[in-house]
Write a protein that binds this DNA or RNA. Structure first.
Lengths: 107, 107
DNA sequence: AATTAGTATCTTGCATTATAATATACTATG
DNA sequence: CATAGTATATTATAATGCAAGATACTAATT
């Protein structure tokens, strides 16, 4: 799988998953890994960035199975950004596919 | 437009356009710019990489309108890589969309 | 009790790629 | 001769994914 394809898109994937329910980092790795390869060294810095820009908040919760889990919850601005980013992504894919299939849509 | 979305995909766009016909850098910038913002500072290093890994060859051609044009032509390995990369991209988009819409396709 | 495996978070250093800014140079037009 | 359009190229910077490694807790096995 082309690593470069993931740039920026993983952020959107994380945000999109958080619109469904709050999740912790390890859980997000497992969930996303079902579709796309992702490592923990990617997700934790990413989650930290999301928190730094105010798109998520966090809270700790104990677990019977291991270390305490840090849950991530979307903020209002995070929800807004997610919608915008999703629209950007769909637009982008459409334009790329235009280049790939037609070569040129205006010729 | 999210810059990160472009990572790796511009390379595919360039390669895909070259499957149709040989083009020079400035022409590629204009062509791709119809769909996706791209600058010259992006395309020339990219084209150099494509040449370094042997996916394209180049030849110069004079022009009545300005400096001589450096045309890029896909090699056999470049054609093969383009097909593979295109398939990767389609697979990737499908998986991302799975995450974005369903949240989880196996739950 | 000690070891192992699974769960969970985090940091560091590295590689890749897009871009702005800048430089160069040729042609045509005013 | 200055300007605009065409055309190629380089440099320094920013963003992001990842391997590798560290830490720590729980549960099961030895």
């Amino acid at each position: 799988m082309n690593i470069q394809f993931k740039k920026g898109v993983l952020e959107l994937c994380v945000l999109a998953l958080l619109t469904k329910k709050n999740r912790y980092g390890y859980d997000l790795v497992n969930e996303i890994s079902k579709n796309i390869e992702i490592s923990e060294g990617t997700i934790y810095p990413l989650l930290r960035r999301l928190k730094n820009v105010g798109w998520v908040t966090t809270y700790l919760q104990e677990s019977r199975e291991g270390a305490p889990r840090k849950y991530y919850k979307l903020t209002q601005s995070g929800q807004k950004v997610t919608e915008e980013m999703k629209a950007d992504w769909e637009d982008f894919v459409e334009k790329v596919n235009g280049l790939l299939s037609g070569g040129d849509m205006n010729e």
